[in-house]
Amino acid sequence: MNRKSKDKRECERLVLASQAGRREAFNKLVRMYQNRAMEAAVRILGNAGEAEDTVQEGFVKAYLNIGSLKRADYFEFWLLRIVANTAISQGRAKKLRKQRIELAQYRKRRQQPSAVGKQESFELKEAIGKAMLKLSRKEAMAISLFGLDGFSHKEVADVMSCSVETSRWYVFRARKKLKAELKEYL
């Protein structure tokens, strides 16, 4: 049995235990999938700070609704869908408010001598966050999930409950928009 299928079995066991009300089992699921969830959220939101809030919220939603998950082997897809939807919804509402604060901080930092690399990272993070806002909900979700390690259009389609062709279309549209928005960084 290879490592991947062993992990999958372990995940299914933990999901069933969580559905039976065992908190410790859900804690193990959090440890197994928090990196994956963070990566999906960072890809949508552009920055780790907001992604952490989103991932916390996502896990709480998953915990409260785990009883409704019919297929234990779909836990990862189900969790990523929750996290991605939460990221898109919360991110867009918070984005404008945070952007104003961060813009003020950014202007302040620009006046002080700082490492060039750090400033570039900050600008990139901001630019990606803004560019992602130009995408539709489904485009943002598709391009972010597609970037995850080991995720093909098949997995993206599974998470989004759509066909592989539709996933391809969303990724194509998202790339086109992002290329236009981020052209100065390419």
Partner: peptide
């Protein structure tokens, strides 16, 4: 574009 998104994600 993929490299740019990956770079930002890994930095974050």
């Amino acid at each position: 574009l993929d490299m740019l998104l990956n770079r930002n994600a890994s930095e974050q």
